[in-house]
Design a binder for these strands. Structure first.
Lengths: 247, 247
DNA sequence: GATCTTATTCGTACGTGATACGAACAGAGT
DNA sequence: ACTCTGTTCGTATCACGTACGAATAAGATC
């Protein structure tokens, strides 16, 4: 009874194109994207988006059914950025997939909210293009379809997980430099825990790092994280190539 | 001016333990966890948690500073479930890390909200224990500390990403069986896109799958996803072992 | 045991967000 | 000029997080 016109995704619903709409879904998505990038995802509110467009809040509901539709639009807009230039796909499957992986990660990290706001992400047009590119990259493996899909999925898993963790790390680092007291508190708490004796491994690492200047933790700079990603990616591709008997 | 008592994480703030508090942070976390698992993360509201405990809404704020504290408590409670029995750590580094990875994934998937709700996740006591276990697993590699950390991080990336995607897939599958119309709409939309000719790879896959009974998409059952995870994990470990010159 | 202190509980109020509803407005076809 | 209905948006409702301060009661002091 509640949700009758609630069917499907925005992609299946025709956008208003009749007489003379003042806006388009693209404009809405762009406005939302702009706000998210500049002021954070939480700042993306229907009112704020409307204001950005110079429209009344409720006007947006003529173009979308609800806010999750807007988010879907945003997600898909991002995926457009994740597309690689066609030349990259004509390399070996390994280089092509690596190129896609690198670019995807870049885009994800450029929009930190993208991964944390993925309520059942819709499969929009740019998602299809992105997927098509991955298939093209994997085409030269000569693998059967299921294996090809699996290859893509596994690499995607790694990319998403790495982006997620990298975003977390960088966010934390940013917060930390804004509020040094917090770091101090966290560190002293950690040390106190270590002294319980329940963390021999951690204690060893901490003691080891005490000599050098490094803060004895995982790397926190963007380049360090990217280098780590790169090494992991290559290792993963190695392993997959071997298991799938690829050259 | 705004946030002066806002320092640090809950872990650094002492829990009320003076005269006779009627509740504990653990009870609050448990109640919240129960609600999240049964009714979804969105159902976890301060009022709802309080009701679950038979307390007034604002009572919670005596134990916690804000809702993100509650979420941090929930995250840490989950990590307790992710700890593996000690025996698992005394195997080869490969088996030990695989055991941790498998268990972590299980737990993440058992609480689908955990990954989508990670505003800068706090590093609580169980996070430390979890990390300690990973370090113990990686200890027998004989690698230097940085390499050990990287090994753990890369595997964790894959685990998180896979769990994320698996959760998405299963959620979508669940929604789909509840509303078959949506699937039909999505499929017809997809086919229409294919006919534009812009998706040769996808079209090929679709045509190939048209003969068999499979819906020509990525696997959607939990066991299929778990099997895929397993194969990817082994491949990743292969690749890492080779790159790090481990046996 | 009566009284006091303050730890602990919680009712009320405010600000914000999503969005249902329906009125106001305007462009196109007659 | 008039009508039809596509398009815009003001108002109202409900849910949420939480600031503030009042109400309550546990334990210390006498």
């Amino acid at each position: 009874m509640a949700t009758e016109h609630d069917h499907g995704t925005i992609w299946t619903l025709p956008a208003p194109a009749g007489r003379k709409p003042r806006y388009t879904r693209e404009q809405i998505a762009d406005a939302a994207l702009r706000i998210a990038d500049q002021e954070g995802f939480d700042a993306v509110t229907m009112k704020r988006i409307a204001a950005e467009l110079g429209a009344g809040t409720m006007t947006l509901y003529y173009y979308v059914r609800n806010k999750t539709d807007v988010v879907a639009l945003m997600q898909d807009a991002i995926l457009a950025e994740a597309l690689v230039p066609g030349e990259d796909l004509r390399q070996s499957w390994r280089d092509a997939m690596a190129a896609i992986a690198r670019r995807s990660r870049q885009v994800l990290m450029a929009h930190p909210w993208s991964l944390s706001s993925l309520n059942e992400a819709q499969f929009g047009p740019n998602a299809m293009r992105h997927f098509e590119q991955s298939l093209a990259a994997a085409a030269s493996t000569g693998l059967a379809a299921p294996a090809r899909l699996e290859l893509i999925a596994v690499v995607d898993d790694y990319v998403a997980g790495n982006a997620l963790h990298a975003i977390e790390a960088l966010t934390r680092a940013k917060l930390a430099e804004a509020d040094p007291d917090m770091v101090a508190a966290a560190v002293s708490y950690g040390i106190a825990q270590l002294e319980s004796g329940d963390f021999p491994q951690l204690s060893a690492i901490y003691a080891e790092g005490a000599g050098s200047e490094e803060p004895a933790g995982p790397p926190m700079t963007e380049t360090a994280l990217t280098d780590q990603f790169e090494r992991g990616l290559l290792a993963l591709l190695d392993g997959l190539a071997a298991r799938l008997r690829l050259s």
